[in-house]
Design a protein around this nucleic acid. Structure first.
Lengths: 213, 213
DNA sequence: GTCTATATACGGATAGAC
DNA sequence: GTCTATCCGTATATAGAC
């Protein structure tokens, strides 16, 4: 239920794809309208038949990126068997987030990379869409917390920021030759759920922590 | 032992500080030499008495950012009691990395934000410095692995990318009003070492994992 | 060591032919 | 719906006065 099909007459979609790709690779300012046009196999002037300004392209790329990943995660969660545990829900969300981000992810990764570097106005504009996706994760983690599955001493907001952050950062280092996205998703889940300590080290560590508290 | 003092005659350092701040907030291309000059309380032409080009400023900002954080982490590790565990070393590195990044971090966070969006040539130029810092973490985690403290089934490289990634991502959301950096460092350590599951959920989860394997 | 003035190039955006 | 041509602002960088 992404908003892409709505106005995707082909050319428009092509321009958006080109823009997302260039924004991602070079940043918003360094990607010129001429560059975008070239990738979309047109001349710069033609862009303005489809979009009023470069800013409008940016706005659409940003929203599409989040909406796409949000929709995929939402659909995957809805498709889970009704009695699934909140742990399975998180596992699923991790896998789908990474799949969209790394496999079909020009829009999403463009979003992740340029968001911190665009004018305040553009940020405010796309804030609602971002917030909606953040809320999705908050709900997921809050439920897990209430179910007694996830620890309550770190705080749901912090957990979300750290977890989603480590996933988002993958756009900085992932290359297709690093193995399938599923493996990364598996590592993220393992690490997030179990932590990194071996059983023996864990026992020692918890004992020490206990003493301190 | 950062390379800052070497040529920091004041004006030069001021320009670098201004540039780092603007690169961080707007990205490399959007931050103009005029902007940098204005923040450093000069006119654009004067910049070129101190630097040959904007690219040179970028190169220096990038290297300084990494060298600073690397030096701080290295010093903190060297200052640990000789019999410290590899776990304490990692804990220390996490804390110092976050402190430098979030408290004195214009250079470091500029680095983190713009690295993905600068020309290939600039990236290659600063690669050695980045690699050296990455090696520092690899050594830390490899030692912990060898000591039987850290699990071996995820892979040291993946662990490093996910851990450092979740920390680096904090530049996207941290604001001073979110509480002291130490608290964030504590949360990161807890999450990284222990994972997020409650003891009961952990038992169930491990049993399920065991069955699958 | 910093200024003003300017060369030169390139950016976003528009007008009007086709 | 796409093109060419072009306006106009702004970017990096330089030259030379002070």
């Amino acid at each position: 239920m992404s908003s892409l099909p709505a106005r995707a007459d082909g050319t428009r979609a092509e321009i958006l794809r080109a823009a997302a790709c260039l924004f991602r690779d070079r940043g918003y300012h360094a990607a010129t309208v001429r560059d975008i046009a070239a990738v979309a196999k047109m001349k710069a002037g033609s862009i303005y038949y489809h979009f009023a300004s470069k800013d409008e392209i940016l706005a659409e790329v940003l929203d599409l990126g989040i909406e796409r990943i949000h929709a995929a995660v939402r659909d995957a969660l809805a498709a889970l068997p009704p009695k699934s545990s909140s742990i399975e829900a998180i596992e699923t969300a991790i896998r789908v987030h990474l799949e969209i981000l790394l496999r079909y992810g020009d829009f999403t990764s463009a979003n992740i990379r340029v968001y911190g570097q665009i004018p305040e106005a553009a940020r405010r504009r796309s804030h609602p869409v971002r917030q909606a996706y953040a809320d999705c994760w908050t709900a997921l983690l809050t439920r897990a917390c209430r179910d007694g599955v996830v620890r309550g001493d770190i705080g749901v907001k912090m957990l979300r920021l750290l977890l989603v952050g480590s996933m988002n950062w993958t756009v900085e280092w992932y290359k297709a030759d690093r193995g399938p996205v599923e493996d990364i998703a598996g590592s993220v889940s393992k690490l997030f759920f179990e932590g990194v300590l071996t059983p023996e080290a864990r026992t020692r560590w918890l004992r020490r922590r206990g003493k301190r508290a």
